Amino acid sequence: MGKTKAKKAAEKQVDDFEIGAKIKALRTAKKKTLQEVANDTGFSPALISQIENNNVSPPIATLSRIAKVLGVRVGYFFEDEGIESDYEVLRADQRPIVTKVISSSGGQHGYIYHALTHKKRDKLMEPFVLTVEPGVRDDDNQYSHEGEEFLLVMDGEVELLLGEDRIVLEEGDSVYFESSLKHRLLSHGDEKARVLAVLCRGN
């Protein structure tokens, strides 16, 4: 499979996950209104509606808060309906890609992300590769949620807003932190950056 075909296959796979439809189904099953989910997550009903209709994709931190309110793990939204396995091998050309990522204020969030696992269920860790686009500086939108996170810069440079601190991370640098700290990953420099992000869920 050529690179173009592989990319199209990966992009098609993320549609198969139907993240918005899963959120809506969970919300409906729990008899929650859009307003109730909005109140519990701190996001607007309009944003929740956009996500449910697959018009936009939530950043990972936003999805984590929605998952908590609906009583599931964030990895639930990326799981296949296939047979459970004790291990999973994911080829590079099979990574589901999530695009149209939007901030809670409705602005461009500045990255796309690939889910690195979608067959292993009930995981303690949720790994992703983030591609951070240059030029997006949405400093006002920081996020917090339960659990812990590990970031490793694979290529390029990024700036991490972490609590009151601003930390520039270069290729090979890593950081581990409590996800309850307000945080936001920003571009730094004129080139794209790739970051391995591993989320460990809270109790």
Rank of each mutant, 00 (worst) to 15 (best):
M1N: 11
G2R: 10
T4S: 13
T4E: 15
K8F: 06
A9F: 06
A9W: 04
E11D: 05
V14F: 07
V14S: 10
D15Q: 09
D15E: 13
D16K: 08
D16Y: 06
E18R: 09
I19H: 04
I19E: 01
A21N: 10
K22D: 08
I23H: 05
I23S: 07
A25P: 05
L26C: 09
R27M: 12
A29C: 09
L34V: 12
L34I: 14
Q35F: 10
A38S: 15
N39K: 14
D40Q: 13
D40R: 12
T41A: 11
T41H: 13
G42P: 09
G42A: 13
G42C: 13
F43R: 10
P45V: 07
P45Y: 11
L47G: 07
S49C: 12
S49G: 12
I51G: 04
I51E: 06
N53R: 15
V56D: 08
S57Y: 05
I60Y: 01
T62D: 09
S64K: 12
R65G: 05
I66H: 03
I66A: 04
V69E: 07
L70N: 04
G71P: 03
G71M: 06
V72Y: 02
V72C: 05
G75D: 15
Y76V: 00
Y76R: 01
E79G: 02
D86W: 11
Y87D: 08
Y87C: 08
V89E: 13
A92N: 13
A92Q: 11
Q94Y: 11
R95T: 11
P96G: 04
I97R: 05
I97C: 00
I97Y: 02
T99G: 02
V101L: 00
S105P: 02
G106R: 07
G107Q: 11
Q108K: 10
G110A: 01
G110F: 04
I112E: 06
Y113G: 00
H114A: 06
H114C: 03
A115P: 03
L116G: 02
H118F: 15
K119L: 15
K120F: 15
R121T: 14
D122R: 09
D122I: 10
K123C: 15
M125P: 07
E126L: 11
T131L: 13
V136G: 07
R137G: 07
D139I: 13
D140L: 13
Q142N: 05
Q142T: 09
Q142W: 03
Y143N: 05
S144P: 00
S144V: 00
S144K: 13
S144H: 09
H145G: 05
E149L: 13
F150R: 12
L151Q: 10
L152N: 11
D155Y: 12
G156R: 14
G156W: 15
V158N: 01
E159S: 01
E159K: 06
G163L: 03
E164P: 00
D165A: 02
I167W: 01
E171Y: 03
G172I: 06
G172S: 07
S174L: 08
S174N: 10
S174I: 03
V175L: 12
S179H: 05
S180V: 14
L181W: 08
H183R: 08
R184D: 04
L185P: 00
H188N: 06
G189M: 01
G189V: 01
G189L: 03
D190A: 05
D190W: 01
D190T: 07
E191C: 01
K192A: 02
A193S: 05
A193L: 00
L196G: 02
L199W: 04
L199R: 03
N203V: 13
N203E: 14
N203M: 10
